[in-house]
Simulated scan of single mutants.
Amino acid sequence: MEADLVTVLRCPVCSDALALTGRTAGCSQGHSYDLAKQGYLNLLPSASSGIDGDSAAMVGARTVFLGGGHYAPIRDALILAAAGLREDDLLVEVGAGTAYYLSGVLGTAPGRRGIALDVSRYAARRAAKVDRRIGSVVCDAWQELPLLDDSAQLMLNVFAPRNAAEMARVLAPGGTLLVVTPNQEHLAELVGVLGLVKVDQEKERRLQESLAGKFEQAGTELVESVMRLDRTAIEQLVLMTPSARHLNHRELAAQIAVLPEPSVVTLSVTLSTWQVA
């Protein structure tokens, strides 16, 4: 965690700005937070300390699957949507996981910086190692985000929780929010066969309602592709999703074993662009 990245963060207790001294981030009120040896900063309020994020196994599966490039069309679409970024802008990803999307959008601009927010310390460990320009922070997306007002120019939200009031507070005037949500067709070939969680038919309506009053929609884009996945990739895909929390892993392995190899699986998501109202 670089010192300049800590300066955009705020204390989860009193909301004062943080500054880094050695390996400790502290505020003027005397609250302090030590950097983990893996490089991330835990700013999760004590009241939220019992919240479970992605497990180490889920994060490991995500790392392997995304590393295979299967979701590259989503990453590429985000990069194009963020093409107007300036060289010194700050990007924030809420529910960043391994910071796969955030690192792609950062590109090669040396002055551009990113903050990866996630409730999972296992995800934070991975994100902290991706790029020196990315600061990795553990926090609860449903609570106050540990970022200063008007500090970011772009925010990413890919399959993640959306706290509209906090996202609008953190984004500077004219700031942009990019949201990626799954469509009904997404992974349709696997949902019934493997018992995965189905996409809510009311997802689009709920997205509109969740952002209403804080953001105005500026556009939408359908991102679709056909993935050809071997059985190992399918297993990693399932294990990185919320479905992994309730599936019997032995039964899952047996179900995957009878699938054709490779299996044709649909990637179908909507990328929507929002501006602060």
Score class of each variant (00 low, 15 high):
3 A>S: 15
8 V>F: 06
8 V>Y: 03
14 C>E: 09
26 G>R: 09
26 G>T: 04
26 G>I: 02
28 S>K: 10
38 Q>S: 15
44 L>M: 05
52 D>N: 14
53 G>Q: 03
53 G>I: 04
55 S>I: 07
56 A>P: 01
64 V>P: 03
65 F>I: 13
67 G>K: 08
74 I>G: 01
76 D>Q: 12
77 A>M: 10
83 A>D: 12
90 L>P: 06
90 L>Q: 06
93 E>K: 06
99 A>W: 10
99 A>G: 08
99 A>T: 11
108 T>M: 13
121 R>N: 14
123 A>L: 04
128 A>I: 02
129 K>R: 15
133 R>M: 13
143 Q>K: 14
152 A>T: 05
154 L>V: 15
162 R>L: 13
163 N>A: 14
164 A>H: 07
165 A>V: 11
174 G>V: 12
176 T>S: 06
177 L>D: 00
184 Q>V: 03
186 H>R: 04
186 H>V: 00
196 L>M: 15
200 D>L: 01
201 Q>Y: 08
201 Q>I: 07
204 E>H: 14
207 L>P: 05
214 K>I: 03
219 G>V: 07
222 L>C: 09
231 R>N: 06
233 A>P: 02
234 I>S: 01
234 I>R: 06
247 L>N: 08
253 A>H: 09
255 Q>V: 00
258 V>E: 15
262 P>I: 12
269 V>I: 05
273 T>D: 02
